[in-house]
């Protein structure tokens, strides 16, 4: 069953008086439990497509449905609430809040829920345990390595148990070892926790960890391939 349905989506950005078309009638389905890698050269529209699926941007034309609900018509407030429940974000630069420690960063999305302080603590500890950072809860981002920061960001993404994880170049700022560990963690979340993941990457090796790879060029899908044998860290 398709968790994400993208139909005939166009996205045009306005830059001063110019219109810049980024996506040109893209359609795709992402099944529940899928791990999809979006690849393509800069400007191909892969990050824009990711943003549309994550509900932080709106298509100029076309529809996007997630779990059977058409999200492109949601109000801004409704969309924020929807993202809080259904989407987990992983960014290239980790984007942790520097004034909060690892525990507090992971707790952030839970502040929007009605969970008690005790319940929030349990969820955060579980998420940090899954990413292997249970012993770094009190550390601030500046006290963590890049790989550890990204793992905290992954813990923040999974703490609310969202339907979809969206990752924009999650290994783009990491060395090879940390990149491999991060990808392994994502694969683990996909395989063992059945998380649906959509990941943008430039790196074919990273894409090898996904089940399926979409190649975009000039705002269109030019190739959709299933990865038979998935890469291992």
């Amino acid at each position: 069953m398709a968790l994400v349905e993208v139909k005939e989506v166009h996205k045009v950005y306005k830059r001063d008086s110019f219109e810049v078309p980024v996506l040109n009638g893209i359609s795709l389905s992402v099944g529940e439990g899928d791990f999809l890698a979006l690849m393509g050269p800069s400007g191909s529209g892969k990050t824009t497509l990711l943003n549309l699926i994550a509900g932080i941007d709106r298509p100029t034309r076309g529809t996007i449905a997630v779990d059977g609900r058409e999200i492109s018509n949601f109000s801004e407030t409704a969309l924020a609430g929807w993202r809080a429940r259904h989407i987990g974000f992983i960014f290239q630069m980790y984007n942790l809040i520097p004034v909060l420690n690892a525990f507090e960063n992971v707790e952030l999305p839970l502040l929007l829920t009605k969970l008690s302080k005790k319940e929030r603590r349990e969820h955060v500890e579980t998420a940090l345990r899954i990413v292997g950072l249970a012993d770094r809860m009190k550390h601030y981002p500046r006290q963590l390595s890049g790989g550890q920061e990204q793992r905290v960001a992954i813990a923040r993404a999974i703490v609310t148990d969202p339907s979809i994880l969206v990752a924009d170049e999650p290994t783009g700022d990491l060395d090879a070892k940390n990149a491999a560990e991060t990808l392994d963690l994502l694969q683990h979340l996909n395989t063992d926790f059945k998380k649906t993941i959509v990941m943008v990457t430039h790196d074919p090796k990273a894409a090898g960890f996904a089940r399926r790879t979409l190649h975009l060029e000039k705002g269109q899908i030019i190739e959709d391939t299933a990865n038979g044998a998935r890469a291992q860290a």
Binding site: I56, E76, A80, A84, F89, F91, N95, L108, L112, R156
Partner: peptide
């Protein structure tokens, strides 16, 4: 950071 907060569901 504000963009991140909004992305993870904090309303404007």
């Amino acid at each position: 950071e504000i963009a991140v907060l909004k992305a993870i569901g904090f309303e404007k």
